[in-house]
Design a protein around this nucleic acid. Sequence first.
DNA 1: AATAATACGGAACGAACGTTCCATTTAAAG
DNA 2: CTTTAAATGGAACGTTCGTTCCGTATTATT
Lengths: 194, 194
Amino acid sequence: MARTKLFDEALILDKAMNLFWEKGYNATSAQDLVDGLNISRSSLYDTFGDKHSLFVKALKRYRQERVDPVLNGLDSAGDVEQYIRDVFVAVKDEALNDACSKGCFMVNSAVEMAPVDPEIASIVHAIMIDTESAVAKAIEKGQKQGLFTTSHSAQSLARFIFNAINGLRVTVKFDTDKRMFDDIVDVSLAALKV
Amino acid sequence: MARTKLFDEALILDKAMNLFWEKGYNATSAQDLVDGLNISRSSLYDTFGDKHSLFVKALKRYRQERVDPVLNGLDSAGDVEQYIRDVFVAVKDEALNDACSKGCFMVNSAVEMAPVDPEIASIVHAIMIDTESAVAKAIEKGQKQGLFTTSHSAQSLARFIFNAINGLRVTVKFDTDKRMFDDIVDVSLAALKV
DNA sequence: AATAATACGGAACGAACGTTCCATTTAAAG
DNA sequence: CTTTAAATGGAACGTTCGTTCCGTATTATT
């Protein structure tokens, strides 16, 4: 029948995800994609549809590859407090090691696209909802173990923590001072205690 | 001599600030500016230079008009704790009332432009530095009055608070639930106490 | 009133945008 | 081996981008 693809579709999608993640939707041109993905224009459009469709696929893949594993890990974590701390530290390390300040693809997309693109807004919102409930569930567990304060509901604390992480994803963009991140992480985590 | 300008330059700059604030740099076209500012192309370029120069001017004006007044108010505030709470509430109210989810022009610019535009990165970084020190100064005052915890340095707490506000400016983009904001604000402010 | 400097509106620029089309190449199925 | 549907590379599409240019209108000065 037909010729087989010369490229691995999943691999290309990963590359597209990283391109959009780094430069955003508008600043990533079709030419950038052709160059960065190392496939031809026609293969790009035949395989992924137009630029917007590719972006949506990339954003969904980000969720699968980057968000869901963390949420699953949180669900099955033995030491909830340590796991949350690990997430913060991971964000911090990423900020300090990643030279190009990519931040978080979801946060970037929320800022650039959500206000003018309902489809992307919906994807971002879904990630937010699921993250909030996963964190809330974990915090509730921690509260029962006496690890966290019960002065606030698990949901309130979850929202607070998620907000702090989103803040870090912004801070990444204009600061790479290790002490800055240490301070923010320390106070944020301390807020969960008593 | 010459004809007088038919428009108020400061007023036009305000309009440009709001356009860029709402849509970002890349998504705001020269045509959008001509339409939105109600001046001709030539007047636009003669008065403000190219698009990038106009954006820089708009961002600097944002600082003058929106950031500095808050920092000055913080410096001269009688009740520091209440003032910080007021800032949070103002961010919340803006989020709930502003239909187009503009968020914060500085945060938006940090996410979209800072990684690829040194000039804008520098402006954003300066705002961040000055905000941090203004908040730290206020918190130090509050600590001496016994209002805030001394378990963390004033600088650490300032960084934490600023990070939380930046987080809110992201949350605005995909959530307009009042309770979401109330939870985040409550826990963030509680973290400053004991 | 004449002069001179500037603002203005609108046409036009080349470049880059996202997208489509087509001739060619490829390889699985018959 | 022939057939055939799909993958490919590259040219080309119309549109929009940011920007420039120019003829005209305007007004403070002489």
